[in-house]
Design a protein around this nucleic acid. Structure first.
Lengths: 119, 119, 119, 119
DNA sequence: GTGGTCTAGACCACC
DNA sequence: GTGGTCTAGACCACA
């Protein structure tokens, strides 16, 4: 698995797992792979996965049953949805808009690319 | 001067200087402040500024006359424009679009925020 | 370890490491010593090594796995070969030839020294 | 006038002036341009020219008549010839040969380029 | 453990 | 005065 340079690997993994939940590939109460299994799957040190799970747990997206494993929380999907929309509107958008202005990128250009990729 | 936490200071300074060039606050062949002056101005160690200048020089945004100082390159504005637009379209946009899809954010919603902020 | 006076130490180290790769003392995907180890080995500050590694990375001769270390790139040897041959033919040779002409040094004389040293 | 990056400007100027003497563009007892004139001609600070003249004077290639100017020495041409040949054989050649070996450049290749340029 | 960034202060060659 | 290099030592996030 390939990782982006500018973001911590454990956060990139958190993003992918969140996607799986948004996609309903994983649903509430599913048991997710163990730290070791996931480490192998991602080609990454188990410590790194541990950190991802830790992070998702503080966000109450997954929870832990000791000695058994990690499970998707009841509200996982909604939580992710809420967190990410907030982040998108409050943090990402202002930066995007500022950049677009500075680089003279119009909404039309933006729209054009949007269509291209959506096809 | 205040800096963001999650990005190296020398890169944040590079961004600001690039903005100055995009704004035409600085134009081709202008001499920019010396490493030490800029260090004082930014409240930062001269070495850090040196790193910024080094970085901007590899991008051919500024160049050096030995013993004299750093100067804005001929094509500085175009170079910055090109680099940043490329980055925006090839790296930022795909991520944004993917996120929007995943979070069910429509172009209309995007547009609405765009107008709000632009006012 | 001894260093020449008129060239930055970090560049001299870069040269030596490049030689190791040309010699196949180090090959693709080898992990090279950490910044600190190499610092000790060379009798030099780790920051200086960092600079060397940074430099070699921009040339795509080595690459970094975060938290793990630096590794020799796939094409490292070819890259070095190409860069150095280009430099030799485009920059060094014209200067050499000009000098030889100016100093009335013939190819025969050059050849004679070549043989002497090669023995 | 354009300067190379890797050598002090004052030395590059010294090289050009030496060339003029080897070319017999300047001959023994010629008065050479004043520091200021030369500074203008080269697009360089007079201090830098001063340094060049100083350097050439220690090598006894030029000499100074106070209040009048700098002049080409009697033996200037021979001195330059001797110094530069020595430098070439003792310092340049070993480096060149080492590089050629490392880069698998044969004398034939060297010869080929020699012919190309000489034409 | 790894790299990465930053500071403070030094010294140098060069213009 | 300018940039450039180097050191020593600190702190941090990440694996």
């Amino acid at each position: 698995m390939e990782f982006n340079e500018h973001k911590a690997i454990y956060l990139q993994i958190a993003d992918r797992l969140s996607e799986k939940i948004l996609n309903e590939e994983w649903v509430s109460e599913d048991r997710i792979p163990s730290v070791r299994e996931m480490g192998v799957e991602m080609g990454v040190n188990p410590n790194t996965i541990m950190r991802t799970y830790d992070y998702l747990q503080t966000l109450e997206i997954i929870y832990n049953k000791r000695g058994i494993g990690y499970f998707v929380s009841q509200n996982a999907k909604n939580v992710i949805f809420k967190i990410q929309r907030e982040c998108f509107f409050n943090e990402d958008l202002p930066i995007i808009f500022k950049k677009m202005k500075l680089l003279s990128i119009t909404e039309e250009e933006f729209h054009k690319h949007f269509c291209n990729i959506s096809e």
